[in-house]
Write a protein that binds this DNA or RNA. Structure first.
Lengths: 171, 171
DNA sequence: AGAAATCCCAGTAAATTACTAGGAAATATG
DNA sequence: CATATTTCCTAGTAATTTACTGGGATTTCT
């Protein structure tokens, strides 16, 4: 009989029964983590451990998400004891779109080769659906780019201020 | 040595290297098929075989997509020789949103239990990201619901009318 | 020196996608 | 009435992706 010692962070396979057009846990967890980071930074860098405890996320997994955010230039890291992460820009300068693209890659609903010139889509010029994917893409982009991290942090502050039980404040 | 007799419709695993937030082939193929159906109906029902030839899609797979469209009440079927499919409504009454939801299921980027009342999201009331997913959902919904099949058929007609080589007209 | 962090890479079970396959049932036509 | 054509239904499967876990090197503060 084998016993697993490490408790599994009970997984969300793209939030229960999935359809498509879903954000993965990367985008969902990552945005929560970044809001948390924004809230708790100010007195020095914020460690992955502290975020993972507050937000109830796997420490190891979060590590990977932070790496993506770093690569995208949204956060900076400070190594060694007492280290952690800080935002690389002001919260007003970071949009939800920046965060999600860093974590999920392109948010375009279809990687249509007809959308960029060098692609080799056979039906490129007679392609009608391309127009649809473009419209969807524009509307998603517009939406996520007009929400700033700043707004979310503010919103969270309001909600959690009135909340006696801080552990419930998980974004 | 074994030889495969059935040629595989060389697959698109969600359009090459995927990210997330992607439409599956169901949505992409299905919309093309429905545009085709709209264009070629008028003189009786349109068969799956004819659509699959014109649009270069797997006949068997398309069958499954049509079944979904039927279940959603977008098309009606006529069985037996000379049968096929016809639109169940006018093209003006069918939106891209109707089609995509029939094929892909919900288009919401996150199945957030906090979004419907009876869900059991622990962080429900302090959940800030929920607001983001709601905004994205609204913008996608608005966009896909304001494009009608009618518009796409018209667009396709314009493009293909000036196209000598009909085989290129694949939507 | 030692603890606390980030960093980096590898592995894996579960889920999903994008099909293929087989055959039953219905219907028009010769 | 036989036959071809067509929808209908269910099952199977290889490739791919997701959502993690794990080990260990490296950096830095104390």
């Amino acid at each position: 009989m084998s016993v697993s010692l490490t408790e599994r962070h009970y997984g969300e396979y793209t939030a229960g029964r999935s359809g498509k057009m879903k954000l993965s846990t990367k985008g969902r967890y990552g945005l929560r983590a970044l809001i948390d980071l924004a809230q708790y930074s100010g007195d020095g860098p914020v460690s992955i451990t502290s975020i993972s405890v507050r937000q109830d996320l796997s420490e190891r997994y979060l590590e990977q998400l932070m790496s993506l955010l770093k690569k995208a230039g949204l956060v900076r890291s400070i190594r060694g004891a007492g280290g952690g992460y800080v935002l690389a820009k002001d919260t007003k300068e970071i949009s939800v779109g920046d965060v999600l693209r860093a974590l999920e890659g392109s948010l375009e609903p279809v990687d249509c080769p007809g959308l960029d010139p060098e692609g080799g889509c056979k039906a490129a010029d007679s392609c009608v659906t391309k127009y649809v994917w473009k419209r969807i893409n524009e509307s998603i982009t517009r939406t996520v780019d007009e929400i700033s991290l700043d707004q979310l942090v503010e919103e969270s502050r309001k909600k959690c201020a009135s909340d006696a039980d801080r552990t419930k404040c998980k974004n």
